[in-house]
Protein backbone atom coordinates (compact mmCIF):
# COMPACT_ATOMS: atom_id res chain seq x y z
CA UNK A 1 0.00 0.00 0.00
CA UNK A 2 2.65 2.46 1.03
CA UNK A 3 4.80 1.29 -1.83
CA UNK A 4 1.99 1.97 -4.26
CA UNK A 5 1.55 5.47 -2.97
CA UNK A 6 5.25 6.05 -3.27
CA UNK A 7 5.28 4.96 -6.91
CA UNK A 8 2.43 7.32 -7.75
CA UNK A 9 4.18 10.12 -5.93
CA UNK A 10 7.40 9.67 -7.87
CA UNK A 11 5.40 9.38 -11.07
CA UNK A 12 3.78 12.72 -10.39
CA UNK A 13 7.07 14.26 -9.44
CA UNK A 14 8.50 12.96 -12.73
CA UNK A 15 5.76 14.67 -14.71
CA UNK A 16 6.18 17.99 -12.99
CA UNK A 17 9.93 17.86 -13.50
CA UNK A 18 9.55 17.55 -17.26
CA UNK A 19 10.12 20.81 -19.13
CA UNK A 20 6.90 22.33 -20.35
CA UNK A 21 7.78 22.08 -24.03
CA UNK A 22 7.90 18.30 -23.63
CA UNK A 23 4.44 17.99 -22.12
CA UNK A 24 1.33 17.21 -24.14
CA UNK A 25 0.08 20.77 -23.69
CA UNK A 26 2.84 22.10 -25.87
CA UNK A 27 2.59 21.62 -29.66
CA UNK A 28 6.19 20.50 -29.92
CA UNK A 29 5.80 16.80 -29.00
CA UNK A 30 2.91 16.51 -31.42
CA UNK A 31 4.75 18.10 -34.29
CA UNK A 32 8.15 16.54 -33.65
CA UNK A 33 7.63 13.15 -35.37
CA UNK A 34 6.27 14.67 -38.55
CA UNK A 35 8.85 17.41 -38.49
CA UNK A 36 11.59 14.80 -38.16
CA UNK A 37 10.19 12.84 -41.10
CA UNK A 38 9.93 15.95 -43.21
CA UNK A 39 13.47 16.91 -42.30
CA UNK A 40 14.87 13.50 -43.21
CA UNK A 41 12.85 12.80 -46.35
CA UNK A 42 12.06 16.30 -47.58
CA UNK A 43 14.41 18.91 -46.32
CA UNK A 44 17.64 16.92 -46.37
CA UNK A 45 17.33 15.77 -50.00
CA UNK A 46 16.35 19.27 -51.00
CA UNK A 47 19.41 20.84 -49.37
CA UNK A 48 21.57 18.03 -50.70
CA UNK A 49 20.27 18.62 -54.23
CA UNK A 50 20.85 22.33 -53.81
CA UNK A 51 24.47 21.81 -52.75
CA UNK A 52 24.92 19.24 -55.50
CA UNK A 53 23.74 21.67 -58.13
CA UNK A 54 26.85 23.78 -57.54
CA UNK A 55 29.22 20.85 -57.90
CA UNK A 56 30.64 18.64 -60.60
CA UNK A 57 32.17 15.20 -60.48
CA UNK A 58 35.90 15.26 -61.10
CA UNK A 59 36.49 12.01 -62.92
CA UNK A 60 40.15 11.86 -62.12
CA UNK A 61 40.04 12.72 -58.44
CA UNK A 62 36.65 11.00 -58.10
CA UNK A 63 35.26 13.70 -55.85
CA UNK A 64 32.57 16.34 -56.31
CA UNK A 65 34.09 19.78 -56.79
CA UNK A 66 32.51 23.17 -56.39
CA UNK A 67 31.98 24.74 -59.80
CA UNK A 68 29.68 27.68 -59.01
CA UNK A 69 26.81 28.31 -61.40
CA UNK A 70 28.19 26.10 -64.14
CA UNK A 71 25.33 23.59 -63.98
CA UNK A 72 22.74 26.33 -63.95
CA UNK A 73 24.29 28.07 -66.95
CA UNK A 74 24.47 24.78 -68.81
CA UNK A 75 20.81 24.22 -67.96
CA UNK A 76 19.69 27.52 -69.42
CA UNK A 77 21.64 26.82 -72.60
CA UNK A 78 20.38 23.25 -72.93
CA UNK A 79 17.80 23.07 -75.74
CA UNK A 80 16.63 19.74 -74.44
CA UNK A 81 15.60 21.42 -71.17
CA UNK A 82 13.48 23.94 -73.01
CA UNK A 83 11.95 21.16 -75.08
CA UNK A 84 11.19 19.20 -71.90
CA UNK A 85 9.64 22.27 -70.32
CA UNK A 86 7.40 22.81 -73.31
CA UNK A 87 6.43 19.11 -73.39
CA UNK A 88 5.64 19.23 -69.67
CA UNK A 89 3.57 22.40 -69.97
CA UNK A 90 1.66 21.08 -72.96
CA UNK A 91 1.05 17.78 -71.26
CA UNK A 92 -0.12 19.36 -68.01
CA UNK A 93 -2.33 21.90 -69.74
CA UNK A 94 -4.07 19.43 -72.06
CA UNK A 95 -4.50 16.87 -69.28
CA UNK A 96 -5.99 19.40 -66.88
CA UNK A 97 -8.41 20.88 -69.37
CA UNK A 98 -9.68 17.52 -70.55
CA UNK A 99 -9.78 15.91 -67.11
CA UNK A 100 -11.54 18.89 -65.59
CA UNK A 101 -14.13 19.14 -68.33
CA UNK A 102 -14.75 15.41 -68.42
CA UNK A 103 -14.73 15.20 -64.64
CA UNK A 104 -17.31 17.95 -64.31
CA UNK A 105 -19.48 16.47 -67.03
CA UNK A 106 -19.44 12.98 -65.53
CA UNK A 107 -20.01 14.35 -62.03
CA UNK A 108 -23.07 16.27 -63.24
CA UNK A 109 -24.40 13.13 -64.91
CA UNK A 110 -23.74 10.90 -61.91
CA UNK A 111 -25.01 13.36 -59.32
CA UNK A 112 -28.50 11.94 -59.21
CA UNK A 113 -30.31 9.70 -56.82
CA UNK A 114 -31.62 7.29 -59.37
CA UNK A 115 -31.41 3.55 -59.17
CA UNK A 116 -27.99 2.18 -60.06
CA UNK A 117 -26.18 5.50 -59.82
CA UNK A 118 -24.53 4.55 -56.54
CA UNK A 119 -22.95 1.56 -58.22
CA UNK A 120 -21.86 3.69 -61.17
CA UNK A 121 -20.23 6.16 -58.82
CA UNK A 122 -18.33 3.34 -57.14
CA UNK A 123 -17.24 1.83 -60.46
CA UNK A 124 -16.10 5.25 -61.60
CA UNK A 125 -13.30 5.25 -59.05
CA UNK A 126 -11.79 1.96 -60.24
CA UNK A 127 -9.07 3.46 -62.49
CA UNK A 128 -7.65 5.23 -59.44
CA UNK A 129 -6.59 1.97 -57.83
CA UNK A 130 -4.64 0.71 -60.85
CA UNK A 131 -0.88 1.34 -60.46
CA UNK A 132 0.25 3.96 -63.01
CA UNK A 133 2.88 1.63 -64.46
CA UNK A 134 0.17 -0.94 -65.14
CA UNK A 135 -2.00 1.73 -66.74
CA UNK A 136 0.98 2.67 -68.88
CA UNK A 137 1.45 -0.94 -69.98
CA UNK A 138 -2.24 -1.27 -70.70
CA UNK A 139 -2.30 1.73 -72.97
CA UNK A 140 1.01 0.70 -74.54
CA UNK A 141 -0.72 -2.50 -75.62
CA UNK A 142 -3.89 -0.71 -76.67
CA UNK A 143 -1.90 1.70 -78.81
CA UNK A 144 0.56 -0.83 -80.18
CA UNK A 145 1.23 -0.11 -83.85
CA UNK A 146 0.41 -3.57 -85.16
CA UNK A 147 -2.00 -5.32 -82.81
CA UNK A 148 -3.26 -2.57 -80.46
CA UNK A 149 -7.03 -2.53 -80.25
CA UNK A 150 -7.18 1.25 -80.22
CA UNK A 151 -4.70 1.62 -83.07
CA UNK A 152 -6.58 -0.81 -85.25
CA UNK A 153 -9.83 0.97 -84.69
CA UNK A 154 -8.23 4.28 -85.52
CA UNK A 155 -6.76 2.77 -88.71
CA UNK A 156 -10.21 1.64 -89.68
CA UNK A 157 -11.73 5.07 -89.21
CA UNK A 158 -8.90 6.49 -91.28
CA UNK A 159 -7.83 8.95 -88.62
CA UNK A 160 -4.47 7.26 -88.44
CA UNK A 161 -2.50 5.22 -90.89
CA UNK A 162 -0.46 2.12 -90.08
CA UNK A 163 2.67 3.87 -91.36
CA UNK A 164 2.44 6.24 -88.44
CA UNK A 165 1.74 4.33 -85.20
CA UNK A 166 0.52 6.60 -82.42
CA UNK A 167 3.42 6.24 -80.05
CA UNK A 168 6.10 6.14 -82.71
CA UNK A 169 5.04 9.35 -84.40
CA UNK A 170 6.32 12.62 -83.02
CA UNK A 171 3.10 14.52 -83.54
CA UNK A 172 0.81 11.97 -81.85
CA UNK A 173 3.02 10.30 -79.23
CA UNK A 174 2.24 12.83 -76.51
CA UNK A 175 -1.49 12.44 -77.12
CA UNK A 176 -1.03 8.68 -76.84
CA UNK A 177 0.55 9.07 -73.42
CA UNK A 178 -2.09 11.59 -72.38
CA UNK A 179 -4.81 9.01 -73.01
CA UNK A 180 -3.44 6.90 -70.16
CA UNK A 181 -3.27 9.92 -67.88
CA UNK A 182 -6.82 10.98 -68.73
CA UNK A 183 -8.20 7.49 -68.22
CA UNK A 184 -6.56 7.18 -64.85
CA UNK A 185 -7.09 10.65 -63.43
CA UNK A 186 -10.48 11.79 -64.70
CA UNK A 187 -12.13 9.79 -61.89
CA UNK A 188 -10.18 11.86 -59.40
CA UNK A 189 -11.72 14.99 -60.86
CA UNK A 190 -15.14 13.32 -60.87
CA UNK A 191 -14.79 12.58 -57.17
CA UNK A 192 -13.81 16.12 -56.27
CA UNK A 193 -16.49 17.67 -58.48
CA UNK A 194 -19.12 15.34 -57.08
CA UNK A 195 -18.18 16.26 -53.52
CA UNK A 196 -18.34 19.92 -54.57
CA UNK A 197 -21.75 19.54 -56.20
CA UNK A 198 -23.10 17.74 -53.15
CA UNK A 199 -22.01 20.57 -50.88
CA UNK A 200 -23.81 23.29 -52.87
CA UNK A 201 -26.87 24.80 -51.17
CA UNK A 202 -30.14 24.00 -52.93
CA UNK A 203 -32.04 27.20 -52.13
CA UNK A 204 -30.33 29.37 -54.76
CA UNK A 205 -31.40 26.82 -57.36
CA UNK A 206 -35.01 27.24 -56.32
CA UNK A 207 -34.65 31.00 -56.49
CA UNK A 208 -33.07 30.73 -59.94
CA UNK A 209 -35.87 28.49 -61.17
CA UNK A 210 -38.38 31.11 -60.09
CA UNK A 211 -36.26 33.88 -61.56
CA UNK A 212 -36.68 32.09 -64.87
CA UNK A 213 -33.31 30.45 -65.43
CA UNK A 214 -33.21 27.42 -67.71
CA UNK A 215 -30.88 24.48 -67.14
CA UNK A 216 -27.97 25.94 -69.05
CA UNK A 217 -28.27 29.38 -67.46
CA UNK A 218 -28.48 27.78 -64.04
CA UNK A 219 -25.31 25.83 -64.74
CA UNK A 220 -23.40 28.80 -66.09
CA UNK A 221 -24.53 31.39 -63.56
CA UNK A 222 -24.92 29.33 -60.40
CA UNK A 223 -23.16 25.97 -60.54
CA UNK A 224 -19.96 27.11 -62.25
CA UNK A 225 -19.28 30.12 -60.03
CA UNK A 226 -20.28 28.30 -56.87
CA UNK A 227 -18.03 25.41 -57.86
CA UNK A 228 -15.10 27.55 -58.94
CA UNK A 229 -13.28 27.29 -55.61
CA UNK A 230 -13.45 23.53 -55.69
CA UNK A 231 -12.36 23.50 -59.32
CA UNK A 232 -9.39 25.75 -58.58
CA UNK A 233 -8.21 23.50 -55.77
CA UNK A 234 -8.61 20.42 -57.96
CA UNK A 235 -6.65 22.04 -60.77
CA UNK A 236 -3.91 23.03 -58.36
CA UNK A 237 -3.53 19.56 -56.87
CA UNK A 238 -3.66 17.89 -60.25
CA UNK A 239 -1.42 20.52 -61.86
CA UNK A 240 1.41 20.09 -59.37
CA UNK A 241 1.13 16.37 -59.83
CA UNK A 242 1.15 16.62 -63.61
CA UNK A 243 4.28 18.71 -63.57
CA UNK A 244 6.27 15.76 -62.32
CA UNK A 245 4.86 13.42 -64.95
CA UNK A 246 7.24 10.50 -65.37
CA UNK A 247 5.61 7.06 -65.05
CA UNK A 248 3.45 6.85 -68.18
CA UNK A 249 6.19 8.37 -70.29
CA UNK A 250 8.82 6.06 -68.90
CA UNK A 251 6.69 2.98 -69.52
CA UNK A 252 5.19 3.96 -72.88
CA UNK A 253 7.74 5.96 -74.84
CA UNK A 254 10.82 6.59 -72.69
CA UNK A 255 10.55 10.15 -73.91
CA UNK A 256 10.60 9.23 -77.60
CA UNK A 257 10.37 9.29 -80.47
CA UNK A 258 13.40 11.53 -80.26
CA UNK A 259 12.51 13.86 -77.45
CA UNK A 260 8.88 14.32 -78.48
CA UNK A 261 7.47 13.13 -75.16
CA UNK A 262 10.41 13.91 -72.89
CA UNK A 263 9.10 15.75 -69.83
CA UNK A 264 11.30 17.51 -67.29
CA UNK A 265 11.18 14.52 -64.97
CA UNK A 266 11.84 12.12 -67.80
CA UNK A 267 14.89 14.14 -68.89
CA UNK A 268 16.12 14.40 -65.31
CA UNK A 269 15.70 10.65 -64.95
CA UNK A 270 17.69 10.08 -68.11
CA UNK A 271 20.53 12.29 -66.90
CA UNK A 272 20.43 10.54 -63.55
CA UNK A 273 20.86 7.17 -65.29
CA UNK A 274 24.00 8.43 -66.99
CA UNK A 275 25.45 9.22 -63.58
CA UNK A 276 25.54 13.00 -63.87
CA UNK A 277 23.88 13.51 -60.49
CA UNK A 278 24.69 17.23 -60.11
CA UNK A 279 23.05 18.12 -63.42
CA UNK A 280 20.02 15.94 -62.67
CA UNK A 281 19.71 17.66 -59.31
CA UNK A 282 19.89 21.07 -60.98
CA UNK A 283 17.15 20.11 -63.42
CA UNK A 284 14.94 18.79 -60.62
CA UNK A 285 15.42 21.99 -58.65
CA UNK A 286 14.45 24.00 -61.68
CA UNK A 287 11.31 21.91 -62.07
CA UNK A 288 10.46 22.61 -58.46
CA UNK A 289 11.02 26.34 -58.86
CA UNK A 290 8.82 26.45 -61.96
CA UNK A 291 6.06 24.56 -60.12
CA UNK A 292 6.23 26.93 -57.16
CA UNK A 293 6.05 29.99 -59.40
CA UNK A 294 3.16 28.70 -61.50
CA UNK A 295 1.24 27.42 -58.47
CA UNK A 296 1.63 30.76 -56.73
CA UNK A 297 0.52 32.69 -59.79
CA UNK A 298 -2.47 30.42 -60.01
CA UNK A 299 -3.39 30.87 -56.37
CA UNK A 300 -3.16 34.65 -56.72
CA UNK A 301 -5.04 34.74 -60.00
CA UNK A 302 -7.94 32.55 -58.90
CA UNK A 303 -7.93 33.63 -55.25
CA UNK A 304 -7.74 30.03 -54.12
CA UNK A 305 -8.30 29.59 -50.39
CA UNK A 306 -7.73 26.32 -48.60
Amino acid sequence: MTQGTAVIATGRAGVTRMPRWLTSEHPFPWLAPLAAMLAVFGLYPLIYAFVLSFQQRNRIKRVDEFVGLKNWIQLVNDDRVWNALSVTLTYAFVAIVIELALGLLIALLLDQDRKGYGLMRALMTLPLVVPPAVTGMMFLLLEDGSFGWLSQNLYMTGLLSPEHPILATGSTALMGVLLADIWQWTPFMVLIMMAGLRSLPKEPYEAAAIDGANAFQTFRRLTLPMLSRVMAVAVLIRGVDLFRIFDYIYVMTSGGPGTATESLSAYAGRIFMTGNFPYAATLSLMTMIVVIIIANLFVRLFKVRF
Binding site: A209, I210, G212
Partner: peptide, 27 residues
Amino acid sequence: PKDRNIAMVFQNYALYAHMTVRENMSF
Protein backbone atom coordinates in the same frame (compact mmCIF):
# COMPACT_ATOMS: atom_id res chain seq x y z
CA PRO B 1 -41.31 27.23 -61.94
CA LYS B 2 -39.47 29.28 -64.56
CA ASP B 3 -42.49 29.09 -66.84
CA ARG B 4 -45.04 30.15 -64.22
CA ASN B 5 -44.10 33.83 -64.25
CA ILE B 6 -44.08 34.22 -60.50
CA ALA B 7 -41.76 36.02 -58.12
CA MET B 8 -41.05 34.67 -54.67
CA VAL B 9 -39.42 35.79 -51.45
CA PHE B 10 -38.10 32.81 -49.56
CA GLN B 11 -38.31 32.32 -45.84
CA ASN B 12 -34.55 31.65 -45.76
CA TYR B 13 -33.75 34.36 -48.35
CA ALA B 14 -32.03 31.97 -50.82
CA LEU B 15 -29.74 34.70 -52.09
CA TYR B 16 -27.01 34.04 -54.64
CA ALA B 17 -23.92 34.11 -52.41
CA HIS B 18 -21.49 34.76 -55.26
CA MET B 19 -23.34 37.79 -56.58
CA THR B 20 -23.50 41.30 -55.21
CA VAL B 21 -26.77 42.77 -54.03
CA ARG B 22 -27.12 44.50 -57.37
CA GLU B 23 -26.49 41.29 -59.31
CA ASN B 24 -28.89 39.40 -57.09
CA MET B 25 -31.62 41.84 -57.90
CA SER B 26 -30.88 42.10 -61.61
CA PHE B 27 -30.52 38.36 -62.16
